[in-house]
């Protein structure tokens, strides 16, 4: 297997399942099975009703750009700079931190519609990234 530069998440009971979903191509959102509240990042207990019971839904992958930063320095091996990091408000209502790809830095804007693309590293590790939504106004 090819070596990857990317820091791998520690896979614990509270988050490992989410990365397993990503490995299978899906962007998951944890859901409380008692009060149906969605939550991200995943946690073992619902902050609303304190239930420990949860499942998850699969996000549509559509959302809008809440905020962003364009990273120039320091440059870590393996990443392409300028590196665009974004917060996406998913249409399901939770927020997700990710990378924006297939977009020039000067074209990034607050509120732009984005859609998920599942990125795969040479070693097979997969993580959700986003690109400008196809068919959306530029």
């Amino acid at each position: 297997m090819a070596q990857s530069f990317r820091m791998k998440p520690p896979m614990g009971e509270d988050n490992g399942w989410w990365w397993q979903e990503a490995a299978e191509g899906r962007l998951a959102i944890q859901r409380c099975t008692q009060c149906q509240t969605l939550r991200h990042p995943p946690r073992p207990v619902c902050g609303e009703c304190h239930s420990f019971d949860w499942d998850h839904v699969t996000a549509s992958g559509r959302g809008t750009l809440c905020s962003f930063t364009i990273l120039h320095h320091p440059q870590f091996p393996g990443f392409d700079y300028p590196l665009i990091i974004i917060l996406v408000d998913l249409e399901e209502g939770t927020r997700f931190t990710s990378q924006l790809v297939n977009c020039a830095p000067e074209d990034v804007s607050f509120g732009m519609p984005v859609e998920m693309v599942m990125h795969e590293d040479p070693d097979g590790f997969r993580l959700p990234m986003f690109q400008p939504a196809k068919g959306a106004a530029a």
């Binding site: 820091m7 998440p9 988050n15 990273l71």
Partner: peptide
């Protein structure tokens, strides 16, 4: 560490990157 892992794999590794957002 799980908290940091929502950011580190994306290359969001520095205080500047977190504050900039």
């Amino acid at each position: 560490l799980i908290h940091w892992s929502w950011y580190m794999p994306y290359g969001m590794l520095t205080p500047g990157s977190w504050i900039a957002m």
